[in-house]
Amino acid sequence: MGKVVVVTSGKGGVGKTTSTAALGAVLAQSGKKVVLIDFDVGLRNLDLVMGAERRVVFDLVNVTQGQAKLSQALIRDKRVESLFLLPASQTRDKDALTEEGVASVINTLREKFDYVLCDSPAGIERGAQLAMRFADEAVIVTNPEVSSVRDSDRIIGLLDSKTLKAEQGESVTKHVLVTRYDAGRAARGEMLSIADVLEILSVPLLGIIPENQGVLRASNVGSPVTLNEPTNAAARAYADAARRLQGDDVPMVTPVEKKGLLNRLLGRRVA
């Protein structure tokens, strides 16, 4: 039985889709069978970030409504053999997904895959709630910024009340993934530190992804950053996070500011 992991955040634009792609790709590279499901009905983007936008024939809604078989809708990644994508629908009908339909798809995928990663839409509405509904674990993507942390807190509340696990008296295992972390700004007290975020949210840390230009380069070319530039700092942080998700004990490295010679000589940078 595979694990169902929702990648969620509440706030938009914090890196859910990027993180789903990056984590999924390393998990698959390490030999796991992984499927990524895009739950953002109407605004699908995981296909684009994965570079599979021209290969979408059927989508999640087609499968839940019986217009296509699950095997027809799954897109196999061209780089990693054990990585698959189930794209979201472009329909504008927000009620296109039903709980029963999603349950059936997830239960089938859970039998065949080691990891089912659900890329949640932003917000706390139906789409986000369906994405987390059947999750065993949750990766809460958070930027060190007030509105993102507040929305993460709200999402944690939903994970503890609206998921099937919560209703059955169990709990979804939660992890915080801090993205777009700028070590220099945190050191200068201009950005919430990792300790601040963890103290406020009280959820264990899965990883710290530093702000990195390689992330945008990867999405430009349609490849998860972990495959596109595996040695870059963000990719390595995602790889560590993926190992922690599998239960490995990987020491947490807080990124430090790389100061150039000029900045060193000038001392503290003035904003």
């Binding site: 910024e145 007030v146 942390v149 507040r150 807190d153 709200r154 509340g157 009340s161 700004r185 945190a186 200068r188 007290g189 201009e190 950005m191 919430l192 530190s193 601040d196 103290e199 406020i200």
Partner: peptide, 24 residues
Amino acid sequence: RGGSAPVARERLQVLLAYERNNRN
């Protein structure tokens, strides 16, 4: 004048304490 992060932390702590109590 260190930075604005301590202000952010304090504002969040006050706000979230309230929001958690008033959920539902």
